[in-house]
């Protein structure tokens, strides 16, 4: 009896997952496809770019700086044992561009902007703002959701690039200015080993994929949440957990495909 009910439970969990996936797919296509008739859709996007992108800038820059500095410090300590400390620039740049840049920026983005998106949309749902928008004859998918999706898609790749540059600069700060690696070899080693297409562009492809997934999860969780304060808090937690897992899992798959 209990085995059967356990199997049934498993089946129901599977069905719930599939139906949530289906709903989120329909949600996404309804939000992004089809024309928007609002003349002010650019103004809406601008507002969201500010709250999603610009407000995430500070945490991105600070984290990037520290990660670059730590990478240089650790890398130097290991490489100096082999007398190859001038390769530290190359190590910092490749690590940042290929892995840490896209992944850490996406994780920070999920925590900073993703959770805020979920909570904001959830609150609009709980206070019936989305319903009343519908009754005014405005589709909230187009008016509320679509600009937030686009803002996320645009912001995260930009943030990732800034994150990488700041990190590599932070690495040079530690390696060159503090530990005394010759600055010419820091940069030229880097330039010799970093390929624009293979490393920079592949890293940016990752960032674009992560931007899509994280924003999608955040916005859908907000739109689909139970409209109570408890439901919003659970949806916010789910956004951060699902988005982080999705980023890390996808990163492995993308790395396996790219490098």
């Amino acid at each position: 009896m209990s085995v059967i009910s356990r199997v049934a439970l498993l089946g129901r969990a599977g069905l719930d997952t599939v139906s949530a996936l289906g709903r989120s797919g329909i949600f996404l296509s309804n939000a992004l496809l089809g024309r928007t008739r609002f003349g002010n859709s650019f103004a809406l996007l601008l507002k969201q770019l500010y709250s999603v992108g610009v407000l995430s800038l500070a945490i991105t820059i600070v984290s990037g700086l520290f990660i670059g500095m730590v990478l240089a410090l650790q890398g130097y300590n290991i490489l100096v044992g082999y007398g190859s400390e001038q390769a530290v620039g190359q190590m910092v740049a490749l690590t940042m561009l290929r892995e840490l840049g896209p992944v850490v920026a996406a994780l920070l983005f999920a925590g900073r902007a993703g959770s805020a998106l979920t909570a904001e949309i959830g609150l609009m749902k709980a206070t019936e703002q989305l319903s009343s928008m519908e009754m005014i004859g405005v589709d909230p998918l187009k008016y509320v959701i679509a600009p937030r999706l686009w803002a996320g898609f645009i912001s995260l790749p930009l943030l990732t690039m800034i994150f990488c540059v700041v990190g590599i600069w932070g690495g040079s700060l530690v390696a060159v200015d503090w530990l005394g690696v010759y600055s010419g070899s820091y940069w030229s080693n880097m330039q010799n080993s970093v390929e624009f297409v293979d490393d920079v562009l592949n890293g940016m492809v990752k960032a674009v994929v992560f931007a899509f997934v994280v924003t999608w999860i955040a916005v859908f969780q907000g739109y689909d949440c139970e409209p109570t304060s408890e439901g919003i808090s659970r949806a916010t937690t789910r956004t951060v957990v699902y988005a982080s897992l999705a980023v890390l899992g996808l990163d492995f798959i993308l790395t396996a495909l790219m490098f």
Partner: peptide, 11 residues
Amino acid sequence: GMLFQSGALFT
């Protein structure tokens, strides 16, 4: 036109 219980103004 619909008047919601909470008013539902855009905050």
